[in-house]
Amino acid sequence: MIKTQNPRYEFRIFGNHLEKIEKQIREMAKEEQTRIMTSVYLLASGNPKNNIKIREGVMDIKVLEDEHEGLEQWDPFLVGEFPLKAETIKNVIFPALGVHYPAFERDEYTLEQFVDELISGDPDLSVAYVMKKRHGYTIKNVITEVAEIKVNGASIKTICIESENPSKVLKIKAKLGIEKNVENVNYPLALKRIMGLVSLPENWKSESF
């Protein structure tokens, strides 16, 4: 696997009522870019340490390396572009998913073959189709993002603050008025909650977050 960037500490929230934080972000920085993209996430209920997704036919895996004062440090690796060799799927992807690999009937798999033949039939695995409209900002050299996302067609928003330096993330988080007890929710966890793969916390309600 190829390392794609230095690991970053990340604080992320999901919700339906994030207007107050969005307004603060817009007051502190100008929007630099808007990107629209579709990602396919692979989810396994017993696997909290790997964030596995495919975007534009390319798979990458982020590994949770560290947790520090409520922040998560994710280390990204590039797995490769589809079609992927069965050997790579067996030795890299299934271990990252934390489930046993199936029998392989091909030497290599297109994305469609991979999802249809190796993922869909496994009761321990799920696929989330996520469309994102990402609005990028930089606040005091810290990447900050507001995104409208659609998970299997249903909408929710997410805001993320990320940097290689955790203290910078904590500083921007405080500046945006996000309280210390607000839960840091990464993409796989949010998707698992929406898809019912893990229990919902009490506050995971439309009106309260």
Partner: peptide, 30 residues
């Protein structure tokens, strides 16, 4: 068990009961 929150607005069109509703399925909106 899927949590579904609803905000429903009722109407009556052509003698049929109608509604438009915001629905949150496990927190995501449709």
């Amino acid at each position: 068990a899927v949590k579904v929150e609803k905000q429903r607005y009722g109407y009556m069109v052509n003698d049929t009961i109608c509604e438009v509703a915001n629905v949150w399925i496990n927190g995501a909106s449709v």
